[in-house]
């Protein structure tokens, strides 16, 4: 079982986290194809992905840059970096 190194709560087993997937912003005012791509397609090739992980015991959200090939956490990202707006 994997461990996740967290600057806030230290090393925790991965079973305490929910994996929520890659950080993605919904495209607004786009054509049907772009929207369908957003809904149905995911980045599957090995790469450094920016991902959301939810720590259930603390309710804390982690945004991680993780190398999906080596399973290495490259960086913990500030929430503000991944914010987006939706049409009012």
């Amino acid at each position: 079982m994997k461990l996740l190194d967290c600057p806030l709560i230290g090393r925790r087993p991965i079973s305490e986290f929910d994996y929520v997937g890659e950080v993605r912003k919904p495209p607004v005012d786009c054509d049907t194809e772009t929207w369908a791509g957003f809904v149905f397609n995911r980045q599957g090739a090995p790469s450094v992905l920016r991902e959301r992980w939810y720590h259930r015991p603390t309710g804390y959200w982690f945004i991680l840059d993780r190398d999906t090939l080596t399973d290495e956490v490259k960086a913990i990202v500030d929430h503000r970096e991944v914010r987006y707006d939706i049409p009012a």
Partner: peptide, 11 residues
């Protein structure tokens, strides 16, 4: 979790 994620995503 969905509510809390949206709070964070939309700031």
């Amino acid at each position: 979790r969905i509510l809390s994620q949206t709070v964070m995503d939309l700031g």
